[in-house]
Design a binder for these strands. Structure first.
Lengths: 104, 104
DNA sequence: TTGACATGAAACCATTAGGTTTCCTATAAA
DNA sequence: TTTATAGGAAACCTAATGGTTTCATGTCAA
């Protein structure tokens, strides 16, 4: 789950779309694949890359494979963005730091 | 400057590194390339992809090309992240919305 | 005005990425 | 206990990516 694997995982529009779909809850491969105009094996590959980035968790359930979003895995992206956001939103950054300080 | 071009631009570690370098101010191609173990043409290609994503601005200055960070271009990424951050940090999200409401 | 320097441009190369087809395996249901 | 269903795996294809080398061009300085 290196930072690079996360950025790699979110760089593809199909994978970002799958993440959005999984925000509504767990879904099987068949359910996910039915939403896209590509074959199941292609979707499987996308899901594997998402898993390698830690963005989803896959568990077996009978003959199905259920895929669940793992939103925590996006934290490194948020941290990276935080560094640059200081240049375009001082106000929000200040609040963010306040929240983080409060957490500690 | 489609959203996809932004995600594409930030998906490469060299390009993210260049963005960090440019956070300190404008730099010429030569200055940037001297920091990496690859040829100038390779760096030029990275810079072009960053420009296509709107993440940097390039201007001519004599025989040099000066590259400046354009951090605003990261907003779409921030918005995208915002959607998912609601799942892992309700507290921060609440504050963020408060700030945005205050801006309006 | 000639030479050095900063960069652009084009051709090329190997690897990765995103996709397909075909076939195999495991589980559930009749 | 067959049969249908959900998915895995491997081989293959094309295009995009990240890099190189070579050569051309524009601009500054002697």
């Amino acid at each position: 789950m290196s930072e690079q694997m996360i950025f790699r995982a979110i760089s593809d529009p199909t994978r970002r779309s799958i993440m959005t779909m999984l925000a509504s809850g767990e879904h099987s491969l068949g359910e996910i694949a039915s939403q896209y105009e590509m074959t199941r094996p292609a979707v499987t590959k996308h899901l594997k890359i998402l898993e390698e980035g830690g963005l989803i968790h896959i568990r077996a359930h009978g003959r199905q494979r259920l895929h669940a979003l793992q939103p925590d895995a996006l934290r490194p992206v948020s941290d990276w963005l935080g560094f640059f956001s200081q240049f375009w939103d001082e106000k929000l950054e200040t609040l963010k730091q306040a929240v983080e300080a409060d957490d500690a």
